[in-house]
Design a protein around this nucleic acid. Structure first.
Lengths: 161, 161
DNA sequence: ACTGTGTAGATGCGCGTACAACGTTCTAAG
DNA sequence: CTTAGAACGTTGTACGCGCATCTACACAGT
């Protein structure tokens, strides 16, 4: 393997690989535990919870489908189906966009807000148990710093309408 | 919506929540980029790569289905189907366990090892680009320390036979 | 108004996964 | 030896996701 100036051409040590593997395992493990709790206690998938949460934090409890898809890390088609289900369950409604006939808002209903409020304690408890409680303040700060480098700032959402 | 819809012992600050969310986003992002590369360049899913890798690192290039399922973070049925596919493609073979007629080994074939060797550079390059290169040595050490707390003792695999 | 390019969502389809149930085999108690 | 229960792996089934595709609409240039 050729070595040029710059670190990116160096071989990867087994320690580095191990860090990566542990990261994967930890993330999957935490996410599954969290989702299982939500599913058992509130019959709510993690993706659904995220959608409800994003909507609840948005002005007017509404978001364009496109913007929402970006925030929830879901494909457009995936979001369409998920909103279908949430709408069927009465947690969300679709509303046309007056200034752009292509656009559609997903709007959180009162029922959806209530359901979110119900589930929030479970969610927060899970995060604390699986993640936050395990780390101290310094570690959390270090973690935040690393994440900022890993995930610069893609979410400059532009809302139209 | 406020954070404490229900009562937790200690409130979770929005910074903490934000760290968790970024962790989720970063992990999904990295994993998808990695999988996309593997798929495009070698027509190999990430889960398949992991199976091949685990087998290649195991004595005799073989592992019991159950042990393998644990290491790859897959359900038993999921692993059955995945091994079906890998076997169909000639990358893996099934072999009976002589001392336990219930048991089955998944065995890496020469073709599977070759395919793994082919794909490894892509995998390693992806990890470097998405993860390792972004962090410096200190950060990597901090990350390892945190992960050890989050995921105390992952792989205490006991091989039978 | 007309046409071409781009964007917003929805839909057909195939794939991969998990859950539950099943058959087979191992193990221990009687 | 017999039998109950656990463990291993596979199969039926349903579900969620993404890709490619489609329709409807927007906006610019002519």
């Amino acid at each position: 393997m050729t070595i040029t100036a710059g670190e990116s051409r160096e071989a990867i040590s087994s320690e580095e690989l191990e860090v990566w593997r542990m990261l994967q395992r930890a993330q999957v493990r935490i996410t599954r535990a969290l989702e299982a709790d939500l599913l058992v206690e509130h019959d709510l998938a993690l993706a659904s919870y995220d959608v409800l949460l994003q909507l609840s934090e948005s002005p007017g409890r509404r978001l364009r489908m496109n913007d929402l898809a970006d925030r929830v890390l879901l494909s457009r088609s995936g979001l369409t189906r998920l909103i279908d289900r949430l709408q069927r369950d009465g947690l969300v409604e679709r509303e046309a966009c007056t200034s752009d006939a292509r656009g559609l808002f997903a709007v959180l209903t009162d029922g959806g807000a209530a359901r979110l409020a119900e589930a929030a304690p479970t969610y927060l408890r899970g995060i604390r148990a699986q993640f936050l409680d395990v780390l101290d303040g310094d570690e959390l700060r270090q973690c935040a710093a690393m994440l900022n480098k890993l995930f610069p700032d893609p979410c400059t959402g532009q809302d139209s309408c």
